[in-house]
Design a protein around this nucleic acid. Structure first.
Lengths: 340, 340
DNA sequence: TTGTAAGCGTTATCAT
DNA sequence: ATGATAACGCTTACAA
């Protein structure tokens, strides 16, 4: 059953040199004579040699890979972040190990498993319990946390939420919308929690009634639609929906359509993320842009810095966000940027 | 500078057992006495032991990972496929190594690099030259090709293009649209090429004038918009745009808006893929649904089957697609499915 | 039930 | 410029 694949010994035999020489050739060590290098290279081709990554990793004590732990891999938000990670890691000659915890039964097991095969880890949000993170940290594994509070002394990359959530809510209030409901789940992610905080703060400062609780919805279109339908099914219908992300907002658009409500006249809607399609919706979705690719790129650079050995003290980076005013909030303007 | 991480020896010493016993405990071998297992487990915690994946892979000759080669990782299409791959691989206890060739200078190098650290490879479309694929195949690496023609004897997973492209074009023709232009790049991917073929075939059978050439656009919104603008800037404006995928179609929507054209009255538009937002566009986008997650899941299962050793002859699977009639083609109906 | 020891396929240090 | 050879950290017969 299946003969063993050729190893460095196979090549050495075939070329009549030592394995040391083969190794040198493979790594492009200039210390080998041109003629022998040629010969060895030829042998490698003819025997179909493919160096074993595990053996190399074992010998060099470096995996040349970093691991990503995400809830799942679909959706514009994750896609954007992963894109940035991939590009940055690639530029530094590193590969990416990606896992989605949602599809796994035991995320902790998965992560500790993954941690065996990488030089560093990038962990998104609430994918794994803090305890697991602390444990990995104790093990000395370079770690970067994404969109979540720090644990112990790891690096963190987050984006600004509270401030712009407050500003955006104020904007909605200034449009004259009286009852605004927040759709999202503050308990599901630190990001959502901070947006909810800002939302509440704006109301508090506004002097008007302060919202008690959000209408719960996960960051998905389908749930957003259901939640919006629920939110709109009351006697005194809300005038605006502050959605915790763009996917929820898209669900809200669908709900509005089903109820025959016109946006923004009958119902104003805002999102968060500024995913690519946001401006293709009709009317254009007012939302808050996050620098997705940058989040990923920065995270990659940070882990690899640690892997490289620099022992600087842990740093938390908060990337800025930007309010994108389009039409769904009640503004007429198509385009234009309103910053905070 | 950084002391060495604890190994199996560290634990063995600490627990007063042999490394073999530690290994057994770590792998959950039931042959160890409960008491010793406890003790060893305790030692593992206190010394902060994290097994080295490379060493394990070297000893077992299995990486427990499969590699994915994609052009890039963003966009709904890739996200969908990757999602399916992740879930299926996860269910089988495998990890995913993902690389995007677009961000790399030497894709071939990247791929052969990747191939050293995985048990099998899933390669999408035209990311790497056929020669590289053939080489990997010769090396005996389990390989599954996605959305592209077979090379030698590898497994292939594709979706139906020609037939439904022809049917969809016929549908457009039946709507009475006279001039239809194809936006996309047949040279960029086998998928696009087949859709173009079907598009042309429908015209040929229709007896009317047969389109000469497509308006070139990559599978991206921005390019789609530019291409649509270009296509619409002629004296006898086309009545319909057959877009090679939904992202291009979204660009076409934007172009139509800019030109003040109403869809579908002034201009009919169709897409391909049925990405999640397709039905949120106004009007709903008529398109062709591909089973994205299934493509990924099937690919994962196929590679892992090979890895498992089964040497069945290579199989090409063509997954069915389904025409989703919404409003952008000229139909009134919101919803409803029209199959072929 | 536990230990001994021979791999696994590289890299890297010394010699030569 | 090239070759021996000892790691690298784990798995796995084979013994005990």
């Amino acid at each position: 059953m299946g003969k063993r694949p050729p190893t460095i010994y196979t090549v050495a035999d075939h070329a009549g040199v030592s394995i040391a020489t083969v190794s040198r050739v493979d790594r492009g060590d200039p210390a080998v004579a041109g003629s022998t290098a040629m010969r060895v290279r030829a042998s490698m081709r003819t025997v179909g040699y493919r160096p074993n990554g595990a053996a190399r990793a074992l010998a060099t004590r470096r995996h040349r890979a970093i691991g990503l732990v995400f809830p799942h891999l679909s959706g514009p938000y994750y896609a954007g972040v992963i894109l940035g990670l991939e590009a940055a890691a690639g530029a530094l000659g590193q590969n990416l190990f990606i896992v989605g915890t949602d599809s796994r039964v035991r995320p902790e097991q998965l992560v500790s498993d993954l941690s065996r095969s990488v030089d560093g880890l990038v962990v998104m949000g609430r994918t794994v319990p803090d305890e697991v993170i602390a444990e990995l940290q104790r093990g000395g594994l370079p770690l970067v946390l994404l969109a979540r509070p720090a644990v112990g002394s790891s690096d963190v990359v987050r984006t600004e939420n509270r401030r712009n959530a407050e500003a955006l809510t104020r904007h909605l209030l200034e449009h004259g919308h009286r009852r605004i409901v927040f759709i999202g789940d503050p308990a599901s992610s630190p990001d959502a929690a901070e947006r909810w905080d800002g939302f509440v703060a704006a109301h508090r400062d506004g002097g008007g009634p302060v919202p008690i609780r959000p209408v719960i919805s996960a960051f998905r279109e389908g749930e957003g639609r259901a939640a919006a339908l629920h939110a709109l099914a009351v006697k005194s219908r809300p005038a605006a929906l502050f959605c915790a992300n763009d996917e929820i907002a898209m669900g809200a658009y669908a709900a509005a359509a089903e109820l025959g409500l016109t946006i923004p006249t009958d119902l104003a809607i805002t999102g968060w993320d500024d995913i690519p399609v946001a401006r293709f919706l009709a009317p254009g979705l007012t939302t808050v842009r996050q620098p997705l690719a940058e989040i990923g790129a920065l995270a990659a650079r940070l882990v690899l810095e640690r892997v490289g050995g620099s022992h600087k003290k842990p740093v938390t980076t908060v990337l800025p966000t930007e309010i994108m005013i389009r039409s769904s909030c009640g503004c007429r303007s198509q385009g234009g940027t309103w910053e905070t």
